[in-house]
Write a protein that binds this DNA or RNA. Structure first.
Length: 856
RNA sequence: GCGAAAGUGGCGGAAUUGGUAGACGCGCAAGGCUCAGGACCUUGUGGCCUUUAUCGGCUGUGGGGGUUCGAGUCCCCCCUUUCGCACCA
């Protein structure tokens, strides 16, 4: 730092900010709406933050600054805003911290919450803390348990055995959504499959409703809607049964291409398929095959599903019957068949499916063409084959071994059927329907819709979460905890050793209980719920956080929800946002809410990026070593300058790169606002003065600024709002320095500037408003109105083109007609020069903008 | 591979329904004020050309074509980058 005497500027800014923070603190009721009046109201929501132990850095701040600017803007325009804040307080980091440091998760979590609240306060962001929700409190999580019991009654909460994702680092199972790409969402550790019995919520029952609802989400980013649509993954096709005579069994397959069934030359099962043990019975190589099955099943998902992973399979030696050709086909097992999609088995049509083609080529399975390619595809393929032949010649290789005339690639397009019995010559699309219908008629399958979405696995083998309210009795099996016994409270005294599984299992007073049904000895479920259950309905608890008879009052919820505007990061596109949409549907079916879509509008702010020590531009984060800490920055520059800079960085929906120098622009801007107002006050003019005339150039500039900034805020265009405020300041500074200016207009312009600035720099604007004699906080004193007729300059500068090229600019009064413009243009020497000796062909006139004289 | 979004000065980024490209800021340059400047103020700033200076000209929004009086914006082809999904039968 400099040894030079610092200016007093930042000191004064910091004094101003401290003063206003205290005022807001002391009289929150004056600044925050808690009651919704009849009519207008906006529910503004920020994604529930996790109270991590790390101090928030610049990368975190954007969401909060953005929301606060919007909140303040709406308040100023007279809209009642509900903007609560709470904590996603359960979760693994707190428990891992307990294992490392021996500090109870509750203690560290509550300390983190206090620290984060203090940070929010220092930024000047307003939340309604009277509605604060903390998910790790029994008052909150008892309702998770209550919902669980409702779901159990409806058959939507079930215990079932399946292959689930296990994270060896977090020591728990994970939902499919939390193991995307085969790695743990939290720690990036490759997950391994485990066959376990767990609690699931049957989100798959809602797949179609979740999909349909996406069409109504017009105010959501398309990207998120698309991601959810893909995640749900609807496929239309048919189920078909393949008999295995030697076992007296049938295997059902799902296919989206029943039109290709005549080309199905093998039946392939996932190694996890239930029939595998019986298929291998009596096989001379049984031990070897079983070892292979076991090895595939224990493989990390990331390895098994890796791009370009080698297709690996084994022939079981069994034969199945293709139900349409009646011919025998071999029964194979293969690593690329996914156990829990469809039926875990597929019919292989090598001629018309790329994966099947690769597999068939490798193992010599016959390739039978049943779809005639369309001409355009055929032409393209011929070219490709020539290239392929050429390459093969180079390599000295033949075609596929043992298969004469085999094609070099699968044809996956549409076409007319060949070699397909009675369906030959049908088109793909009609054959799909005919063959599906035929399968249904024969009782061997039929039309079928399937989804990629899996049920939501909510069991976690960890302590710091909502206990699942179930009791296991030797005699009665799984019995729900009666509603009157809720909440099942998480015992405070569990041993955090990090060894031997879930600490809850070792708390005898928790585990040992009696069966609610037979009163005999029984054990409590020690698994806790996924934290995403907590966040699936928290926005409803905000409206009625103290309710101890119900999760929330349906009447109050109806007043405020669904949420009008939700703001958060893209990282929850298919986790939280999918679960919350699922929960909303459950709540609707329970008669608790009238809507299915919980968030009417969604805004995803972009991340703040910065160069990492490695030189790459990366998301700002502590672990990447590129985080700019916020506390010292605010202590040095003031919260207003940081807010203004973060909002000025660029369009808020796009990622924005942080630059350490860039903050000086907005910082200087705020200083100049202050010095300009102070300079005006020194003139002794009345700061509450009114303009002497309504239609003056200065008044027009003011109306224009109000119009632009208002529209910018409405469009979430905070960066252009700051730019327009900067322009308006330059104008206002000129007025202050102009001895001939109307002091009433100057005062009005400055008051307008300060009011418009408030959503971005609340502390400074409140201070200047007060210095100028403002009696009320800007939060409640109203937003300036503008007259659209005055929101333009009275003189229009018109571009004059000759044959489409701009040659001059002329100034005309707004509203001037083509005739006036033309004579003014002709009087211009440059235009006259360009028109010299030319014939006018056409005149194009755009009012107040442009005159184009087409000449030859 | 499939899907989506985006390519504009040295940099971040502006630009209503096609109508003066580069607002605003950073950076840079010159000047002022200063013992000093890493503070502040003023001015300039896409590139090339012309001019003592003006006036002015050419060119310019990833590349190529097209529509139009007029294209950053609309249409076609191509290139690049980012993001999402990725053996889903």
């Amino acid at each position: 730092m400099s040894s030079v005497t610092p200016t007093t500027k930042s000191d004064e800014i910091l004094r101003i900010e401290a003063k206003w923070r205290e005022r807001w603190e002391a009289d929150r009721a004056a600044f925050v709406d808690t009651e919704k009046p009849a009519g207008e109201g906006t529910y503004l929501l920020v994604m529930l933050p996790y109270p991590s132990g790390d101090r928030l850095h610049v990368g975190h701040a954007r969401t909060y600054f953005l929301t606060d600017a919007l909140h303040r803007f709406l308040r100023q325009t007279g809209v009642t805003v509900f903007c609560p804040m709470g904590w996603d307080a359960f979760g693994l980091p707190a428990e891992n911290y307990a294992i490392q440091k021996g500090i109870h998760p509750r203690t560290s979590t509550l300390a983190n919450i206090a620290a984060m609240k203090e940070q929010f306060r220092s930024w000047g962001v307003l939340y309604d803390w009277t509605k604060e929700v903390t998910t790790c409190e029994p008052e909150y999580y008892r309702w998770n348990q209550w919902f669980f019991l409702r779901l159990l009654e409806k058959g939507l909460a079930v215990r079932k055995k399946s292959a689930v994702n296990w994270c060896p680092s977090c020591l728990t199972v994970l939902a499919n959504e939390q193991a995307e790409g085969g790695v743990c969402e939290r720690c990036n550790t490759p997950v391994v499959p485990r066959e376990l019995e767990q609690w699931f919520l049957k989100i798959t029952d809602y797949a179609e409703r979740l999909l349909e609802g996406l069409d109504t989400l017009g105010k959501w980013p398309d990207k998120v809607v698309t991601m959810q649509r893909n995640w749900i993954g609807k496929s239309t096709g048919a189920d078909l049964d393949f008999a295995i005579p030697s076992l007296g069994e049938t295997v059902r397959v799902f296919t989206t291409r029943p039109d290709t069934v005549f080309g199905a030359t093998a039946l392939i099962l996932a190694p996890e398929h239930a029939l595998v043990p019986r298929l291998l019975e009596g096989n001379p190589k049984r031990a070897e095959l079983e070892a292979w099955v076991a090895s595939v099943r224990s493989q990390e998902r990331i390895v098994r599903e890796a791009e370009g992973a080698e297709k690996d399979g084994r022939d079981t030696g069994r034969k199945a019957i293709n139900p349409f050709t009646g011919r025998e086909v071999p029964v194979w097992l293969a690593n690329f068949v996914i156990a829990d999609y469809g039926t875990g088995a597929l019919m292989a049509v090598p001629a018309h499916d790329t994966r099947d083609f690769d597999f068939a080529k490798k193992y010599g399975i016959p390739i039978v063409k049943v779809i005639e390619e369309e001409k355009k595809d055929l032409l393209r393929k011929e070219e490709e084959e020539e290239t392929a032949d050429f390459l093969r010649r180079d390599e000295g290789q033949g075609g596929a071994p043992g298969i004469a005339g085999a094609p070099s690639a699968a044809y996956t397009g549409e076409g007319n059927l060949v070699a397909s019995g009675p369906f030959s010559a049908e088109s793909s699309s009609s054959a799909r329907e005919l063959i599906s219908a035929e399968a249904a008629r024969r009782g061997i399958g039929g039309p079928r819709i399937r989804y990629r979405l899996r049920d939501w696995l909510i069991s976690r083998q960890r302590y710091w979460g909502t206990p699942i309210p179930m009791i296991h009795c030797e005699k009665d099996g799984w019995v729900p905890v009666p509603e009157k016994d809720l909440p099942v409270v998480l015992p405070p005294d569990a041993p955090f050793t990090g060894k031997g599984g879930n600490p809850l299992e070792k708390v005898a007073s928790f585990v040992n209980t009696t069966c609610p049904r037979c009163a005999g000895p029984a054990r409590r479920e020690t698994d806790t719920m996924d934290t995403f259950v907590d966040s699936s309905w928290y926005y409803l608890r905000y409206v009625d956080p103290k309710n101890d008879r119900a999760p929330f009052d349906a009447a109050i919820a109806k007043e405020w929800t669904p949420v009008d505007q939700y703001i958060g990061g893209i990282e929850h596109a298919i986790l939280h946002l999918l679960y919350a949409r699922f929960f909303a549907r459950i709540l609707k079916d329970l008669g608790l809410v009238p809507f299915e879509e919980p968030f009417s509008a969604l805004f995803n702010q972009g991340m703040i990026t910065r160069q990492s020590p490695t030189g790459r531009i990366e998301k700002m984060s502590k672990s990447r070593g590129n985080a700019v800490s916020l506390d010292p920055l605010i202590a040095e520059k003031g919260a207003d300058a940081v807010r203004a800079f973060v909002l000025f960085l660029g369009p808020p929906e796009k990622d924005a790169e942080w630059s350490d120098e860039g903050i000086s622009g907005p910082e200087r801007f705020l200083w100049r606002v202050r010095s300009t107002v102070d300079r005006f006050l020194q003139t002794g003019a009345d700061p509450q003065g009114q303009p002497g005339a309504a239609d003056t150039p200065a008044a027009r500039a003011r109306h224009m600024a109000v119009k632009r900034v208002t529209e910018d805020f409405r469009a979430f265009s905070f960066h252009t709002a700051v730019a327009h405020l900067m322009e308006f300041l330059n104008h206002a500074t000129t007025l202050v320095g102009d001895a001939g200016a109307d002091p009433g207009e100057t005062a009005t312009s400055l008051r307008t500037l300060v009011t418009l600035l408030h959503p971005i720099a609340p502390h400074l604007s409140e201070e200047l408003n007060e210095r100028m004699g403002g009696k009320k906080s800007l939060l409640v004193s109203g937003w300036p109105a503008y007259d659209p007729a005055l929101a333009e300059m009275e003189v229009a500068s018109i571009a004059v083109q000759v044959s489409g090229k701009v040659r001059a600019e002329i100034k005309l009064r707004r509203g001037a007609d083509e005739k006036e413009a033309l004579s003014a243009a002709e009087a211009n020497p440059v235009i006259a020069k360009w028109l010299e000796g030319k014939q006018r062909v056409k005149i194009i006139w755009v009012q107040d903008r442009l005159l184009n004289i087409v000449a030859k």
